[in-house]
Amino acid sequence: MNITQLDLNLMQVFLQIYENKSLSLAAEHLNLSQPAISHSLKKLRDYFDDPIFVRSRGGMVATPFSDGIYPNVKQAITLLQTPILAHKTFSPEQCNTVIKVAVSDFNGAFLLPKLAVYLSEHAPNVELQVVHLDRDTVHQHLASGKLDFAIGSLFAIADAGLYQTRLFEDNYVCVVSNKHSHIQNTLSFDDYITAQHVIFSVEEKGVRDSDAYLKQQQQTRRVVMRVPYAANIVKIVEQTDYICALPTKIATAYCQGLAVKQFPFPFSIPHYQVNLYWHQRTDCSAQHKWFRQTLKSLM
């Protein structure tokens, strides 16, 4: 008996005949012709050297051999079908899984509250594990499965195995204290270059490009403080004459309840861009596709 001659389709035929006691019903459930079912039954009989099923007035009756192998065949087919069906279909309401995401607190302040509300309503059994975005290890962790996704705008894809999609773009604004000594109702170019700036330790590309523009104008801005946490930046601004530049969505998230105001940037700089990154090994996962679509819809 050579097990390599026994394929999964034959065992599916065996199950359907056993459970329905009918060749015609087995053919209907498997979307096959009755001659095809009869041909498969012949192959099963030849392989096992057993009648497998015999005709009776009540339909096809299993032999003792078939009764003996049915439980194991049923279990094996179920074990194979479960991950296959889960791969093709995904129900967030019934999903009980962990999704691991790396994001900076800079972006997390805007993204995570929206995501938390959505998951609590539509995927209550999904556990979201959020870790700080480390640009030095993110590629490795996505490839190894330690991370499912990374959200950011600070790194380019150097690994051909990583995919990305744009989550959103945003304009920058300048945040100023309501009690600022001389910036009141507008923010001019001169106000910007003469002000004292507090900045995020690793500034985004758009703000860095603003320095290149100032250099072309033979101007510079004065940076007096570099802070690793965006929440601290706006609180510092609230109590001083410092100003800071933040994307509009993030500024809105951090500035709620603070005595600060926002002004449009006094000159043109590139938009703030945030991308979602994942590894190619999870690209076809139904669960991952759902999460990617969910994030984009929330933006």
Rank of each mutant, 00 (worst) to 15 (best):
A86R: 15
H87V: 01
H87Q: 15
T89K: 14
T89D: 11
S91H: 11
E93D: 12
E93N: 10
E93F: 13
E93G: 06
Q94G: 01
Q94Y: 07
C95K: 08
T97L: 10
V98F: 01
K100R: 15
K100G: 00
K100F: 00
V101L: 14
S104G: 13
S104T: 15
F106Y: 15
N107Q: 05
A109P: 00
A109V: 13
L111E: 02
L112S: 02
P113L: 01
A116V: 04
V117S: 12
V117G: 02
V117R: 11
V117K: 13
L119G: 03
L119T: 02
H122G: 05
H122T: 09
H122E: 11
A123V: 06
N125W: 05
N125E: 12
N125D: 11
N125S: 13
V126S: 05
V126E: 03
L128F: 05
Q129L: 13
V130R: 03
H132M: 03
H132R: 09
L133T: 04
L133S: 12
L133A: 14
R135Y: 11
R135H: 12
Q140A: 13
A143E: 14
S144G: 01
G145S: 06
D148Y: 01
F149R: 05
F149Y: 12
F149C: 02
I151V: 15
G152D: 04
G152L: 01
S153A: 11
F155H: 09
I157W: 03
A158I: 02
G161S: 14
G161H: 11
L162C: 06
L162N: 08
Y163A: 10
Q164S: 15
T165G: 08
R166D: 10
R166N: 12
E169N: 11
E169Y: 02
D170N: 11
D170F: 03
N171I: 10
N171D: 14
N171G: 11
N171E: 14
V173G: 00
C174E: 03
C174R: 02
C174I: 15
V175G: 07
V175S: 02
V176K: 02
V176I: 09
S177K: 03
S177Q: 07
K179V: 00
K179H: 14
S181M: 04
S181D: 12
H182L: 04
Q184I: 09
Q184A: 10
N185E: 15
L187K: 03
S188L: 04
S188G: 08
D191V: 05
Y192D: 05
Y192E: 08
T194C: 08
A195N: 08
H197D: 03
H197T: 10
H197Y: 07
V198D: 04
I199R: 09
F200Q: 09
F200Y: 15
E203Q: 13
E203C: 00
E204T: 08
E204K: 11
E204S: 13
E204M: 08
K205L: 10
K205T: 14
G206T: 04
G206Q: 02
R208N: 12
D209I: 09
D209E: 12
S210L: 08
S210M: 10
D211H: 12
D211S: 10
A212T: 11
A212F: 08
Y213V: 14
